[in-house]
Write a protein that binds this DNA or RNA. Structure first.
Lengths: 215, 215
DNA sequence: TAGATTGTTAATCGATTAACAATC
DNA sequence: TAGATTGTTAATCGATTAACAATC
C-alpha cells in the first residue's frame, strides 16, 4: 500500500478518465483489426494533443515503440489492467426506485466487468424478490450481504434524505467506493472513494449557455 | 450575441458547475430561513476556497455586501437568472428504452424548470402513445414536433449506433444543446452545445483506485 | 468607530502543449 | 540508413489560492 505509492507520482483525475476513453477506443480499433496506432492518431479522435496522450500513458510505463506507435492489443491489455477492468467487480445497487431500476436495466455497466450482485431497498414489496437473478435485500441486511459477496463498490440511488445514513451503513459494511446519484453532499472516510453524478447539474450548465446567448 | 461577448471574460466550465451547486445550496438555506451567508461559510460546505466562491460570483456582478456577505434570497435569484433557471425549458427525450424511460421517471430534472415536452422513439409499439401526458413520436417527425414546441434541449438516450444520425436530425430541427448518454463520440456544429454523460467512465475511474490499492 | 467581509490583484500551483533527443 | 514516433523536459497556459485595500 504505502509500498507502491512512492512509485506513482499521483495521477490527475482527468488522466484516469482519459485512460478509460482510450481503452474503449482501443477495443473498437482491435475489433476493426487495426494493429498499431500513434499518439497523434489517437489524439485526433478526441480532439486532444498527442503529447497529452503520450504523457497520460507514460505515467504507467513505456508502452510505445519509437517510429511505430502503440500496439493496439498490447496497450489495451495494459490499460485494462491499470483500470482494474481485467477482472469482475461485484457491485451493490442501493435504492430500487425509479432511478435505481433504471440503472439496473441500463446495460452499459455490465460490459466492462461490473456486475450488480445485490440490490438493497427498504420497500417491503421489493425485499425478498429476485430481479433477473439478482436478490433484493432490506437495508438492514446490507452489512451481512455485502461482506458475503465481497462487494467493494456501491451505486447509490436513494432519495437525498436517506443518503447519508445509508452511506454510513455501506462504509461500516466495508464498501470502498460509492457512485452517488443522490443529490446530496455525502461524508465518507478518507479511504473511501466517492464519486457524485449529478444529472441536474449537466442540464443546468447547458441552460446556462442557452440563457447566455439570449441575454 | 457578439454584442454581449465582449463583456463576459469567458467563464470556466468548472465555475458554471459550481454556480449550479451554490444555487441549490442557497435554496436550502432560504428554506431554513437563513438570511445572509459569507463566502467563507458557503465554501466550507463544499470544501472550496472562499476566494474561489467570491471569484466565481464576481464574474457576473457585485452581489455581496462588505462586512455582511451575500443575501441568500437575492443571490439565489441572481444565480437562477444567470443559469437560465428562472424560466421553463421544454426538453426532448430521444430514445425511450431502458435508459430513456429511466431518465423520464427520474424526477430530478423537473424540479428546476426542465420539462420533458416530447419523447421520440422508433419502436412502433411506443409511437403514438402518451406517457403521463407526454406524447411519443416517431423520429421521422422530430423536426416538426421540436419546432412546434420550441424545444432547444435534447436528452439523447439511444444506442451508440443510432446516435450520430439522430443527432444530425436534432441539429437540423434546430436543437441547440444535447445531453448525450449514448457512449459514442458525436459531431455537432460549433453553435450546438454537447455534453456527454458517460456512466461507465465513472465506474471505471472508481475501479482504477480500487485496483491501485491492490497492486 | 471597530469588526467583518467583499472584490480584486498578485502569487502559486498544476495541467496542457511544444519541442526535441533518443531510438525503433 | 532515413523516416517516424516515442518519452521527457521545458515553456505555456489557465485555474486556484493568498493577501489586502475598499467599504459596509
Amino acid at each position: 500500500m504505502a509500498r507502491s505509492s512512492y512509485r506513482l507520482p499521483k495521477i490527475p483525475e482527468m488522466t484516469v478518465r482519459r485512460l478509460s476513453v482510450y481503452s474503449r477506443c482501443l477495443r473498437e480499433l482491435e475489433e476493426d483489426g487495426v494493429k498499431t496506432i500513434s499518439s497523434q492518431e489517437l489524439a485526433e479522435r478526441f480532439n486532444l494533443n498527442s503529447a497529452q496522450v503520450r504523457k497520460d500513458l507514460a505515467y504507467f510505463g513505456e508502452f510505445g515503440v519509437r517510429g511505430i506507435g502503440y500496439y493496439v492489443a498490447g496497450l489495451r491489455a495494459e490499460l485494462q489492467k491499470i483500470l482494474g477492468l481485467d477482472r469482475e467487480w461485484p457491485v451493490a445497487l442501493v435504492g430500487f426506485g425509479n432511478l435505481g431500476s433504471a440503472l439496473f436495466n441500463y446495460r452499459g455497466f455490465g460490459r466492462q466487468g461490473f456486475r450488480i450482485a445485490a440490490i438493497f431497498d427498504d420497500d417491503p414489496a421489493k425485499v425478498g424478490r429476485d430481479v433477473d437473478g439478482v436478490p433484493v435485500f432490506a437495508v438492514v441486511d446490507m452489512a451481512r450481504e455485502v461482506r458475503a459477496r465481497s462487494i467493494q463498490i456501491a451505486i447509490l440511488a436513494v432519495p437525498a434524505e436517506g443518503a447519508q445514513p445509508v452511506t454510513d451503513a455501506l462504509v461500516a459494511a466495508g464498501i470502498k467506493a460509492v457512485l452517488n446519484f443522490a443529490p446530496s453532499r455525502l461524508r465518507v472516510p478518507r479511504d473511501v472513494r466517492l464519486k457524485d453524478v449529478d444529472l441536474s447539474i449537466e442540464l443546468e450548465t447547458l441552460s446556462f449557455y442557452l440563457a447566455k446567448s439570449g441575454r
